[in-house]
Every structure is written in C-alpha cells, then in structure tokens.
Amino acid sequence: MDIFLQQIINGLTTGSVYAIVALGYTMVYGVIQLINFAHGEVVMIGAMTAFTVIMAVVGLGLPLPPALIVLLGVLAAVPVCMAIGYTLERVAYRPLRHAPRLAPLITAIGMSIILQHLALLIWGRDPRAFPQIMENASFAIGGAAISTVQIAIILMSVVLMAGLTWFVYRTRFGIAIRATAEDVRVAALMGVDANRVIAATFVIGAGLGAIAGVMVGTYYGIAHYTMGFTLGLKAFSAAVLGGIGNLAGAMLGGIVLGLVEALGTGYIGDLTDLCRWPLVGGMLAERCEADGHAILFGSNYQDVFAFLVLILVLVFRPSGLLGERVSERA
C-alpha cells in the first residue's frame, strides 16, 4: 500500500470537512469579528439530527436508495442548524454587539456548553453508530484506495465551496455581505440592514456546518455529543491558518490542515520509532529486538497536529496564509 498517496486521499477528505466548517467561523468573523465558538456544536447537532432521521427512515424499512436516505438526513439537519445559528445570533450575540469583545467571546463559550448539554439530554452520552447504509465500495488508485463516501464528501465540498463563492461574489446580497464586512456604517448608507447581513452569515455558516456534520458522521460512522468540540477547534485552526475572515483562506486552510494531519498521523509512528534513531536505538537494543519498534508518538497523536499548526501560525504568521497583514486592516 502506498501510505503517502493513501494519506493524501484521507487528508483531502477530512480537509474538505474542515474547510466547510471553517467557512462558518470565517464568515461570521469577517463581518463582526466574533469567534463563534459554538459553531462546532452546531455541526455536532447537524450530525445528531441527521443520525436520528436516518435511523427513523431506515427503521421504516422502505426500499429507498441509501444516498436518498442520507439526503433526507441532510435535509432535516440543515434547517435545524440554520434555526440554531439564527437563534444564537439573535439571542446571544446581538444584545452584545457593542459590548467589549470579551463579553461575546465568553458568551460563545457558554453557548457551546449549553448546546452540548442540550445534545446530551436529547441523544444521551453513548456514541451513536451511524448506520452504514451507503455501500462503501473502494476504488484502487495507484496503490491506494478511495471509498465512495470519500468521493462523495470531496465532491460535495467542492460544490458547496463553489456555490458559496458564487453567492458571495456574484449576487447582490453576497456583495452586500462583503461591503458590510468592510464597513458596516457605509453599507448602511447604501440601504444594507446590518442585522440581516449578520444573521445571514450565521444562518449560512450553520447550514454548511450541518452538511459537514453529516459528512463526518457518515465518514467515521459515529456521532457523539462531544464531537463538536475537537472538530470545531480544528476547523477554527484551519480558518486561522488560511487567514480568519478570508473565505478562500478558510477553504485552503481546511485542505492544508487535513493533509498535514493525515500525513503527520501516517508518518509520526515511523518518525518517532526510537529503534530507527542510531544513538537511542542502541540503548534500546533489547526492546527493539523483541518488539521490532519503540514508538514514542503513535497515530493516536492525530489531534495534536491541528493545534501545532494553530500555534505555529499564531506565532509566525498571525494573519494566516491568505489574510492581509494585520496592520493593513483599517
């Protein structure tokens, strides 16, 4: 098996999901400079809602094509998450629009906890196994394999990203969103109601998050009320990596983060196998002969990479890959 190619494929898959979630962070940040830490939980609720609907439909035993069943899950999750996104903005953030920045930030964390516990109450604390209804065929490409689910996730993400780009750059309301991001008060002079634009960014981000939630659930085959936390933090890291507030940056950051994580996870075991280190290996000769390896960090360190990337970006290039340098921001 070609590990490199395989990890590229896996990385593109998870990276696509990170990118879609990161868009939710970055759109909101772009318009009101708020980091909506509850966004990860919105994604989780999307996964949970879809899970419930998919289970119910499967329970009916109708001879429906699997893709259609998943689509029904998506169709349920999207409006639910959009409603939550709207409510968050309306109830939690709007009253704090002109408060010092710490207040909405703490509120965001509070909202995150509330949503998580709401999910705990509704779905319980056990992980829910996503029914594996999609026939998960694999195709061999150059010594690696790509599954139908992976293909579906990557294609769907491309469609969503293209659609959002079209919306934001080609439609009247999209241009108004960008104008508001630049200067709310001047946009208001053009007749743009900032409240509508801000609400829209929450609703669109939440809708995308819902779809991302279904993607992760289907990909890993599992959904859990805590899944939004790590996923949200990773997607946030992706948004920062790309340059927070920048749409193309969120897309790029997501993909790059997915690749870094996949490749890192694929190789960290080999790279930290002390038996391969000439000096240390000698000292561990006995163990190396017995086990054949002495791995310091295994692939269970998967989650470390996103945060490593986040820290490195914050230290060396806080504006991210595509963000303008902070000083250029008027």
Binding site: I175, A179, E182, V186, M190, V192
Partner: peptide, 15 residues
C-alpha cells in the same frame, strides 16, 4: 469599499 471592485461599489449604490 476598498476590497470591492469599482463595478461592485457602484452596484452597492443601487442596492
């Protein structure tokens, strides 16, 4: 709007 094109700025005027 510095990051919008001239045409987009004018379009905003007619928003």
């Amino acid at each position: 709007f510095a990051r919008l094109t001239v045409a987009e700025n004018l379009a905003m005027g007619a928003y």
